[in-house]
């Protein structure tokens, strides 16, 4: 599973690469659960390298957002563009999640 994390003061940046589909979604969900169990509560998910997302990927984000909310954390999304952005817009997920044009902008928002 192509996933990388880097720790910033206010959030953990999670960089995902490739597809968030029915095949990879369970692994992503497991990874987010593990990170929350380790005490992480604020995430910025960087979508710059994501070229495909389906409802299975969206459901992982939704489930993670619920868990994060339960511990008073934040889930921010950055760099959602192209066909992936279309899926977010069609599904209404753009209004469900705070999205940012860059990781830097998401980091600034995570301060608030």
């Amino acid at each position: 599973m192509p996933i990388q994390t880097s720790k910033e003061t206010t959030a953990l940046i999670v960089t995902i690469t490739g597809k968030m589909d029915a095949l990879t979604a369970p692994e992503y969900e497991k990874k987010f659960s593990e990170l929350i169990a380790e005490g992480e509560i604020s995430f910025i998910v960087d979508f710059e390298q994501v070229d495909y997302i389906s409802s299975a990927g969206l459901r992982v984000l939704l489930a993670t957002a619920k868990r994060v909310k339960a511990v008073n954390g934040k889930l921010l999304l950055a760099n959602i563009t192209g066909v992936v952005k279309d899926v977010f817009e069609i599904s209404g997920f753009c209004t469900l999640f705070p999205t940012h044009d860059s990781v830097a902008s998401a980091l600034s928002a995570s301060l608030g």
Binding site: D21, A22, Y52, S54, S55, A56, V83, V87
Partner: peptide, 17 residues
């Protein structure tokens, strides 16, 4: 086209789900 390919994969995956 890239977009058509994406939509095709999306339809098949969503239908299979």
């Amino acid at each position: 086209a890239v977009k058509q390919r994406y939509n095709l994969l999306l339809i098949v995956e969503e239908m299979l789900q």
